[in-house]
Simulated scan of single mutants.
Amino acid sequence: MSLPLFPLNAVLFPGCVLDLQIFEARYLDMIGRCMKQGEGFGVVCITEGSEVGNVPEGFSQIGCEALVTDFQQQDNGLLGIRVVGGRRFRVVEAQTQRDNLLLAEVAWLEEPDEKPLQEEDEDLVALLAALAEHPMVAALNMGLTASGQQSLANQLAYLLPFAEEDKIELLEIDDAEERLDAIQDLLDEMQGDMQA
């Protein structure tokens, strides 16, 4: 499967919402093509280099499909789009096109079935509810309710202020329970750092 890539300083998770401003010609063309064909593009996190200009030197080999749900002309004249995370994928091979757009051969990752929330998830469910009240989070209109462990893990991994490297690692974990455990470990580390 061939997928155009959009390297960003962000990690997108399935079911999560991301607002983007598009101003580079290569991405305006890409978005136009995606919308005409009703297809998505791939968001990968930049590990070396910058978002603007040339292709970044390094980017994560795991990413998330982005599906355009809304678009509008911004006050500053730029195109604003809202995407929702679709399927996770692994980059098999990537090539830079003439217009500097990255095109990748990707392998889709298996999404495990949604498992019901457990008693031990209650603290994390409460944390998600608290995050939902934050104005920046509320503006995303993600409809923050965890339908199960997978959606809880995706939303927390996306919204919590973890380092990009940690988020990439979380995106790689297939099992929702394992991902929730990893999120709890990162939260414990953050708390430890605050108390230190």
Rank of each mutant, 00 (worst) to 15 (best):
A157Q: 03
F162I: 06
A176V: 05
Q150M: 14
M142R: 03
A138K: 15
H134N: 12
V125W: 00
D174R: 11
T145H: 08
P135Q: 09
H134W: 12
Q150Y: 14
L180K: 13
Q149K: 14
L171K: 07
H134I: 11
A157E: 06
L127Y: 03
V125Y: 01
E169H: 02
N154C: 10
A153L: 08
E122S: 10
E122C: 08
P135E: 07
M136W: 04
A126W: 05
P135D: 09
L127G: 05
V137L: 12
A146T: 09
D181T: 13
L144I: 08
E172K: 14
L159I: 06
N154Q: 13
N141H: 11
E169F: 02
D123R: 13
A139D: 10
L152F: 07
E122M: 08
I168S: 01
I168L: 05
A138Q: 15
L124T: 00
L180F: 11
D181Q: 13
Q149C: 13
E164M: 10
A163M: 10
L156V: 05
E133W: 02
E122R: 14
L180T: 11
Q149I: 12
L170M: 06
T145K: 11
E165M: 07
L160W: 08
A138T: 12
L159E: 01
A138P: 05
Q150L: 14
A182K: 15
I173G: 00
E169A: 10
A138R: 14
P135S: 06
P135G: 10
D181M: 08
